Amino acid sequence: MIEIKNLSKIYKDEFLYRNFNCAFEENKVNVILGSSGSGKTTLFRMMLGLEKYEAGQILGFNHKKIAVVFQEDRLVEWMNVYDNVAFVLKSSVEKQEMDKLINKALELVELIDYVNYSVKDLSGGMQRRVVLARAIVCRDSILFMDEPFKGLDDELRLRIITRLKVHWRENRTTVFLITHSQQEGMLLGDIIYKLAEKPVKFYKI
């Protein structure tokens, strides 16, 4: 169980979170739903240890590997699609197994025909799919994703979401998905938490 206990965070001289408590289930897709400015990304960053908070505890991440999809793509522009995805595997996987994992991930995001393309030659939406493929191949126990489907057209987004749901269930991945889209939340989430009010409160949907 991953728990947040009595968390308080001040932002612009007022409490964004105050004595905030929540428990998340492992091996589930936990969706954190909220509008722009509701505190989703701040919570994400606090859980990852990237942002300080005034009081409280965030428990359950010790000795666990974590993969992250930020809002920014953070690709290596001088590498091709294959090497960008392989970047997260090189120290832990043999070449044959790496090829298998990467091909499967690129097929899932419909980029298998672009495996040797330089990422700087891809559209913004295609670059985002490279980021998703990189997250898919990670064998980490916890995956954080902040607005991961931005820039994708509706039909493609729905196809990828459908495949990801199956992939995560098969691999028993613990996912924290931050989104403003209720549709994405309803399609992907095993458990949906909606942020509301200030200081922030969670409502389970």
Rank of each mutant, 00 (worst) to 15 (best):
I142N: 03
Q183E: 15
M1I: 10
K95A: 03
E14Q: 12
E94C: 14
E72I: 06
T179P: 11
I32H: 00
L158A: 07
G60Y: 06
T174M: 10
R18C: 10
A67E: 15
F144G: 06
H180I: 00
E147A: 02
K95N: 04
Q71I: 10
V200Q: 07
L156T: 00
L75W: 05
Y193A: 09
R169I: 13
K165W: 09
D73N: 12
S91E: 15
G124K: 13
V88K: 06
T42D: 04
W78N: 15
S8F: 05
N6F: 09
D153S: 09
F144T: 09
Y114T: 03
E110I: 02
Q183C: 12
V166W: 02
E3H: 12
R157Y: 08
C22F: 11
S35Y: 04
V131W: 01
L132V: 02
V93I: 13
E197R: 11
L158W: 02
Q127C: 04
I161Q: 14
K5M: 07
L177N: 01
T42K: 02
I66M: 14
K64P: 08
N171Y: 01
I205L: 15
T162W: 03
I66A: 14
F144R: 06
M98L: 05
L152M: 00
N84D: 10
V130S: 02
Q127I: 00
D153V: 08
R172A: 14
K194N: 10
L106F: 00
D113W: 03
